[in-house]
Design a protein around this nucleic acid. Structure first.
Lengths: 190, 190, 190, 190
DNA sequence: TATGAATGAGTATTCATTCAT
DNA sequence: GATGAATGAATACTCATTCAT
């Protein structure tokens, strides 16, 4: 049994979680240029502890991305089973945008549109894309979404709106009015 | 009488332009964290030359913004006079997005929708917004754009698509397919 | 509970001392414009180590001041108890001037006569002034110093001689001859 | 006739004088670290003009020193001829200290006590020292100053008091009280 | 294992000096 | 002669990363 396979001690696992949580808070507050020291302080651990769990700053950021993806995936199965496929599709879209401020990285990942996925994120990323595709196809079958809407432009749109909503702090009204335009563009011409 | 009123010497003006050009290239390449030294090297000038024309890194970034705005404004009068108001509207939208890789800041500014514009950019920013509004109203009068589309959501959409197109390096096809959805959303329901 | 209360690790304290020592040497050699890098090199530590212990250049300079003051204060109680009040007074004066090359800042502080002392130095500065006053009064009672010599001019003289001795690298002979003139001026007319 | 011998054109001479004057003002205001640009602005000339007259920053500073020395020398012949040699001696000392705020450099030069005189200053510096020595010797002959007071300690004292008076902004009263002590130290024991 | 002290390359900015205009 | 634009070495300070305690 190599050292890599060893399960983490309880306190080590707890520390890893605290670091991740703190990193999300600090990145949200200070932006991508937030320092490792700031993360350590927020987490209440030493700098070395961060580096024990994440070998580089990049690795920590990537771990946050993966975490967000995983949380996203959790909600998907229920939506996929929903009766109203159109409502599920548009609702999912709206949910993501509404939470865009905590989803910047998700937006980034979605906007990547399948290219250039970072190592370690391929599985969960693929899971998300699969689920989105399922939502899309079901909504198209149900006639709620135009048949010629492809995944690339859907992901591109979703990513774009998330990015802008987070960056420019869209209010609820602006978000709803903007999404209404986008959704109308997604609906079949009558 | 002050130095501000004096026109720059020919070589100084040339250098200032080179710095701005280089800064656009370097910012596009390295992101907002690009160093002043990198800009100086790209421009082929000394570090001091940058600081002669732009007292701080912030000032340089703002100058880039203003420059982009100004270039944008130059094309607007012709569009406003165009016969086909709908084509002018959608064409302008497409133009901006097509050049989005060099227009990140424009997107920011547009999306800001008039809020928190840096000093010195208010005028040109307002000019752009005015022109966009004219294009919108004319396109609505011509029946090419739905009547209930307001400026806030239009600017939000425009900003979002620009931001994403620049950030994720959309290819021509992805861009066109995505814009087609957005444009359909802007058109009146038949 | 805070970091401030924690005692420094042994090596950290050693490094802090080395930095202070090196800073004294370098400031004496290069003047107040000495660079932080020069201090780091003299101390044999990295630049960052200096900044860990002293957040700014100003803070380092102030720490040197305080350190010198403290060393000065250590010697005072014994002098104040000395049998020969005149010898104690003139001896103290001579001691300070003799060490003037490492006491430039003390001179500044003394000459300031209580005005404009940096925060954190007021206490020790006041202690020095109190002790000097005690030495003076006792020497006057003992008839070794003229009764009309006040603290302001005493501190002014002390500061002046220290400043010049440090600045112009007085040799032992020049210092002694000069002090003899000053001391004669301090003695009562027979 | 080489270029070096050519007398300066009237405007050039005027500019040189303006630069010197401005440099005195700026150095007094900003200290020795004052920038050449600040001097140029105060003088109302271009940077290049300064460098036409003074090849380096050092040269400018030295020129200021020489100028101050020269002004000092102008007053000396009258003092040397004065009837009361003691009054002349102490009066000269007081005058210098009184003007110490504009005499910092003089103080520096005097305090050098004959060592390390900068090139170009040797003549005027020597003139000053000669005159001071004459004042001293005459005062000693007149019995107003103790016979064992040598030039080195006299210059050292003078320099010290000037330095401190300028640095710590002595008021008139503090200056007079302090000088009284020094002068008493210079007088013969009765 | 956890800590945080140490490191030093990298950043923005200033300023003496040169030289084209 | 005068100007001020250009230069780039130098400075204070930050921060990702390593490693002794």
């Amino acid at each position: 049994m190599t050292e890599q396979d060893k399960p983490l001690r309880a306190d080590a696992r707890r520390n890893k979680a605290r670091v991740l949580e703190a990193a999300e808070v600090v990145l949200a507050r200070d932006g991508v240029t937030a320092s490792m020291r700031a993360v350590a302080q927020e987490a209440g651990v030493g700098l070395g502890t961060i580096y024990r769990h994440f070998p580089t700053r990049e690795a920590l950021h990537e771990a946050i991305l993966v975490g967000r993806m995983e949380r996203l995936v959790e909600d998907l199965p229920a939506l996929i089973e929903a009766a109203d496929a159109g409502a599920a599709f548009f609702g999912f879209f709206t949910d993501i945008v509404t939470n865009a401020s905590r989803m910047k990285a998700v937006a980034d990942a979605l906007a990547d549109a399948g290219v250039d996925v970072k190592a370690g994120m391929s599985e969960v990323g693929a899971a998300v894309r699969n689920a989105v595709e399922t939502l899309l196809v079901r909504a198209q079958w149900a006639g709620a979404v135009r048949a010629d809407l492809g995944m690339p432009e859907l992901l591109a749109l979703l990513g774009a709106v998330c990015l802008a909503a987070e960056r420019n702090q869209w209010g609820a009204e602006l978000r709803d009015r903007t999404l209404e335009v986008v959704f109308d563009g997604c609906r079949p011409r009558p």
